[in-house]
Every structure is written in C-alpha cells, then in structure tokens.
C-alpha cells in the first residue's frame, strides 16, 4: 500500500496535529508513516496544510504532496477560496468537515462528509478539530483500527501538553468521528491525476554571487490573496460615511484606499477581515457581513 494524504484547514483548527494523529495511527497500525505540516508564517485564519505519507515500504518522498490519493478539508469554505482539490487523483477520496454533502461537480472522486466542527464545539467548546479530522481520515481511508486511533490521539494530545480533561474530550471527539464516518474504497492509480497543478509560483533562478535571497520587487506581496483569510466582511455604507479617514489609517494591511473625495474603498482581495475598521469607524458606517 502507498497512500498520500493532504490535509487543509485554517490556522488555529489543528491541521498539523490532525496530520500527526493520522501518521501516528498508521505507524501504530504497522505502516511506515511520515507526517509534516507546511511550514510557513501563516496565522490564525489563514489557509494551512499538512501532509501524510503512509506505506508498507520505507517512505522516500518528502515535502509537499502534489498528487494526493485523498484530501481532507477541515473548513469547506476553502473550496472556494483556495484550491484544496488541486492534484487529487481521480478515484480518490475527499473528506470534508461540513454539515451536508458538498456538490463538487467531479463524479470521479468519492466524498465522506461529517460535521466535525459541530461535534468539536459540543465536546470541546470550540472549533478545534484536530482529533476529529485525524480520526475521520483514518476511518474513511481504512488506515487504522479504533484502538490505534485512540492511542494516537492520546499520544499527540499529551505531546501538546494538554490537561487531562482536554485529552479525554479529544478522545471522545475522535471516538464519535470514527464511529460516524463510513470507510470508502480508494480507486486511484498512479497515472491519473484529476486536476492539474496550477497557481504554483515558479521562482526563477537568479545569479547569487553572495548567496542571498534577493527579491527584486517592491511590494509584490499583493500576489498573496489574503482575502481568503476572512470569515467576516466589512462593508461600507456610503450614505453614513463622513470621509473621516479613520478606517484608512487603522487598516493594518493597507486594504483601504481613498479616492480624490476621500471616499474609502476596501480591497476585498486582501482584506483579512480583522474588523478594526468596523470597530473604529466613528459614525458606525461599516457593517459586517458573515
């Protein structure tokens, strides 16, 4: 067996730990396993991913998994904002944390849906889905049995230094998710990649006389569309706006620009949804749309 899994979520949901749970469970079940998160500076709310390689032979791949057999998506809004299905092989499986089946329009992939967030909120009091996602992936792909999964959750939560009650609660979440999700049959084959990789930034080689990372650009971070971080959207009511500039001054990400009449305009491709503008607008001319 050779199984490559990619997990997607938002910073704060526990996607790195979810990957570790899957890797550890696979190891306990007798496989070779490798798990790693995408190391980056991404913060709370940002799109994050982690990778698990499982095999009955030593694992030799490293790094980003470009053509996974299965993808887990811990926040289904990422389907629109990121491209979590990129490179998924046809016949593969997608495991989605959502209340109901999500129409993907791709008949050749199978879908397992479970509302892990609701369970996590009920059991842990917040959207910390790592144990639930880990358990759901293990069961949906038939990686490890219940006992191994529970043991893996316990090990990983202890590693994080969680209090006893929280470890117990995470085990409960894992148990419920394990019980609730079906096992699907993977039908992927090596050759057949469902979606081409695109949107990958190619970094051209530059001569490096002094071995420096040279960026010959000014302010090119606009290529990063941080608008995908947003879970609430500020909207300006121009009838109420007094053109006071307050929102413009306080927006940390320079996402508000002013035209000649001092009218503010929000750059939704990059607005992270911090809502400072909403809080600070003196006449309360900014509303929040969720």
């Amino acid at each position: 067996m050779k199984l490559n899994i990619r997990l997607h979520g938002r910073g704060g949901q526990g996607i790195k730990t979810a990957g570790r749970v899957v890797g550890t469970a696979a190891f306990l079940a007798g496989y070779y396993a490798q798990d790693s998160p995408m190391y980056g500076p991404e913060r709370r709310g940002a799109h994050v991913s982690s990778f698990v390689r499982i095999s009955d032979e030593p694992v030799d791949g490293r790094g980003y998994i470009a053509a996974p057999d299965a993808v887990a998506i811990a926040d289904h809004s990422l389907l629109e904002q990121a491209s979590p299905l990129q490179g998924l092989r046809s016949g593969g499986v997608v495991i989605i944390n959502a209340a109901k089946h999500v129409e993907l329009g791709i008949p050749t992939i199978q879908q397992a849906v479970l509302d892990i967030s609701t369970l996590a909120n009920k059991i842990l009091g917040r959207d910390a889905v790592s144990a639930g996602v880990g358990a759901a992936v293990c069961k949906a792909l038939g990686i490890a049995g219940r006992a191994d999964v529970i043991e893996a959750v316990k090990m990983e939560m202890e590693e994080l230094g969680l209090r006893e009650e929280l470890i117990e609660a995470n085990i409960k979440l894992a148990e419920e998710c394990y019980a609730a999700i079906p096992t699907l049959q993977l039908k992927t084959n090596e050759e057949d990649m469902l979606m081409e990789r695109d949107e990958i930034v190619e970094i051209p080689a530059t001569p490096a006389p002094a071995s420096v990372a040279l960026i010959s650009a000014a302010g090119n971070s606009t290529a990063r569309k941080t608008g995908a971080w947003r879970d609430a959207t500020p909207v300006i009511n121009y009838q109420k706006c007094t053109r006071c500039m307050v929102c413009y001054i306080y927006c940390p990400d320079s996402c508000i620009s002013l035209d000649e009449t001092l009218t503010p305009h929000i750059d939704y491709e990059h607005c992270k949804g911090c809502l400072i503008c909403f809080m600070e607008c003196p006449p309360r001319a900014i509303q929040v749309e969720v």
Partner: peptide, 8 residues
Amino acid sequence: SPGSPLCA
C-alpha cells in the same frame, strides 16, 4: 502593500 502573512 497588502498581502503580508502577518496576523489579521
């Protein structure tokens, strides 16, 4: 420029 990876 917008698009930094700093926290919201």
